[in-house]
Amino acid sequence: MQTEVVKSRVKKIMNSNEMVGYVFAFPFIFGFICFSLIPILTSLRYAFTDFSLGSKTMEFVGGANFKQLLTDEVFLKSLRITLKYVFISVPLKLVFALLVAYLLTRKTRLQVLYRSLYYVPSLVGGSIAVALVWKQLFARKGLLNSIMGEMGLDPINWFGDQKLALYPLVLMSVWQFGSSMIIFAAGLKEISPTYYEAARIDGANMVQSFVNITLPCLSPIILYNLVMQTIQAFMAFTQAFVITAGGPDNGTMMYALYVYNQAFKYNHMGYACAMSWFMLIVMCLITLVIFKTSKSWVFTESGD
């Protein structure tokens, strides 16, 4: 009798929303605390020390690391370079993704094949193999310059000029527009054909219906892609690490690469942590700005 009561009680507790919710959310809560929250807080603590790998002691140095950031020329340059990279590559990538997705909405039997074709760069772009190919493409005697040569143009020393060196990396990022494209394609499918029908009856042309129907309907997805791609662009590391190693004259010293160098190459862990934190604040600000402005351009269906 008693066990019966206990059993049903246990069952009730187990089935309560609170319990079920936390049981299912447990992996995330555990991971969030262990792999995000604790590292972030530890990182904050290290940011105020002169900690370095291998040394068993560390000293509290107050705000010295943060003060140093303001005078570190390489840091300021890497910040500039990274912002430039983000502001050029993200919009270009989204424009390409949207245009191609729009073009490919045309129903043909080859649609799936075409989408796959354009998705291939996204699929392989993050790999070391493609980064090595990229390095070879833009080398002094690489593929691109041999094309230029055949057209009778002077070769371009991509990686020798710090004004140019960033562009092969930008191009590589834009080249991988496939994943954004697929998300756009999915969004485009959701737009009810009746909207276009109505627009056509009103005499709107392709461009007009794109601007007045497609863009507003897609705006939540544009926002999503914009935020995700911006974050991803801020974190770019492998390309710069493999292709240019940050050169020439730090012309491609992406933020993430400089953090890595300070942490592991120059062995200034504390300083690297301070840089990471600065990065976090910058990213928060930028995301905040995106969300704040989004209110004026993201079109939400009522009741959603």
Partner: peptide, 17 residues
Amino acid sequence: ATMMLPGQVIMIPSFLI
């Protein structure tokens, strides 16, 4: 928030942990 957290911020402390 984790979705928007740049990996570099936690890269080093995670390594240390």
